[in-house]
Design a protein around this nucleic acid. Sequence first.
DNA 1: GCACAACTTTGAATCGTTTCATTGTTACGA
DNA 2: TCGTAACAATGAAACGATTCAAAGTTGTGC
Lengths: 340, 340
Amino acid sequence: MNRSASIKDVATHASVAVGTVSNVLNYPDRVSQRTKERVLKAIDELGFIRNDAARQLRAGHSRTVGLIVLDVGNPFFTSVVRAAEDAAALHGSAVLLGDSGHDAGREANYIDLFQEQRVQGLLISPVGDVTERLDLLRERGVPTVLVDRLADESKFSSVAVDDDAGGYLAARHLLDTGRRRLAFVGGATSIRQVADRLQGAERAVKEEPGATLEVLTSEGMTVLAGRSVGNMLIERGRDALPEGIFCANDLLALGVMQSLTMTHTFRIPEDVALIGYDDIDFAVSAVVPLSSIRQPTEALGRTAIELLTEEVESQNPIHRSVVFTPELVVRQSTASPAAG
Amino acid sequence: MNRSASIKDVATHASVAVGTVSNVLNYPDRVSQRTKERVLKAIDELGFIRNDAARQLRAGHSRTVGLIVLDVGNPFFTSVVRAAEDAAALHGSAVLLGDSGHDAGREANYIDLFQEQRVQGLLISPVGDVTERLDLLRERGVPTVLVDRLADESKFSSVAVDDDAGGYLAARHLLDTGRRRLAFVGGATSIRQVADRLQGAERAVKEEPGATLEVLTSEGMTVLAGRSVGNMLIERGRDALPEGIFCANDLLALGVMQSLTMTHTFRIPEDVALIGYDDIDFAVSAVVPLSSIRQPTEALGRTAIELLTEEVESQNPIHRSVVFTPELVVRQSTASPAAG
DNA sequence: GCACAACTTTGAATCGTTTCATTGTTACGA
DNA sequence: TCGTAACAATGAAACGATTCAAAGTTGTGC
């Protein structure tokens, strides 16, 4: 089969006008039952499939939305993507997914590609500081919603998660379960998420008389970095051991847990409580199931699409920023010492 | 900005014919330097962006390739996707990504969507048994390459990984490091991958005089399932402990490792060697870094695109199946007892 | 000064769909 | 039987880029 059947072929085959075939596809009510049947039969017999390019050309815009994430491999984004796809499907749109892999070049490529495709709008979790690139989009009038990053509301809508609140939640939980001497483990505070989570934790600690928060800086945010911190804690000995540890993400927490449980020096949660952040799949299947802070990724994805739809449909764009509060997930790693 | 500039607007603005603008974009050599500059200036001033729909309509096909995977969250597919994107970029094509989530309905939606988009071809990791759906694609003449699934070569090209060889590799490695009494841990052998890996392991064991392979069936392929198996091994006691354990995936292996290291009943690799499959990110950061079998995901993605390109470019389609052999990754969990 | 080749530029035709003003058909009440 | 309203069907125009035959321009050698 060289060329697929066009609407014209269908029209000929069914002995009707092309407009009628189009109506059957788009406004079935306008067409009589008899004609409709003939046309549908022809469509079936010829294996006709709409040519979306022609449709788009005529319509002036596509029925797709572009979504550019920093890393599809990251469960956080995977979940956002899925939610966005489902939400878009409700509006009859499809999502074109791009993975920038934290690379500004790849990001730029996708932005160009999506603009050539005349996407209705763009959801983007931008790489680094990107005001220029995004300003260009704004000038061109491409509705854009920033994901997982707060935006100047005069410029863009955005959806984000309140990391300060998440940090507060984690520290508050440790305090609530009776721990007073707390430690925060995180990478460089130049990472906004880390800084915000720390700030929230500090806020909670300040509220609690007699509580303290020690900051332990890790080399990165990986399991291995967490293990180093754990080993350091073991060397410092029991007297210097915090009662509760809040790690800036689950990988760090799992690393800390590994070193403590491997050596059997300290028990979790009896000697020290441990809480992470992100609630990755591995949190629940850790040696000691890990308490964590879960980010409302489904809500993020869904809301991002909703904000975008708002912008697409309204004429003069009003931007909104929606900030979600994360959720505490309690597991064994922070069980009360008494109940331990 | 209501409507973006068209090639006609650019032509007017630069006082040239539309054909000339098109030539500047597609065949710059055909245009004189002076004209080219004028046109490029106009393009810049008007913020012109090519309308891909119009281009596609004229060309009769898009410059995109559809890729439907079972689960973008799965690192295996994530890696395949990335490789496919890079390979497609070399051919000047982009990849439209669809995540079926093991759901035949979603898969069908993506197939339809991609056909309407007139993708050049389709890479698909199909859900379940799908001969009918795929046969339809074949009838329509949509070049299709199956990913991670062998295909009847008279019908489709395909790329896959030899799980039998992977199983052989894992068992062979345990034997090579001096282990004789081996165990295989896996979910139901109704899962093809599990069955193939087991078969390969059995082949290796048969080759080795005096070696044995015990099959332990787990309830699923998760960390928790692995932990149950580990606990069972502990209960059985030291005499019944295999010298080497091959788990059908890394999650199972990590579970087994957890239960053994947590209780300190048996040491890895001194008392028992452990090897997994997939080489997930967590394998390297396990308490005892886990040996594993790595699947050549980059090669899979790249080759899939290459086979597809072949089919697209050749007139009468010749199908090929490419099977890759996985790779052994040795880490501490299978170190020789002597060197342990 | 002219013929001819080489290089530029032109603009109408085309791709497949949707839109919509127009025309055709039917049914019904007067 | 006629007028009219409601409903169906028609088909040309439009969307924006690419193509390509044709026309226009320049340069070269004799």
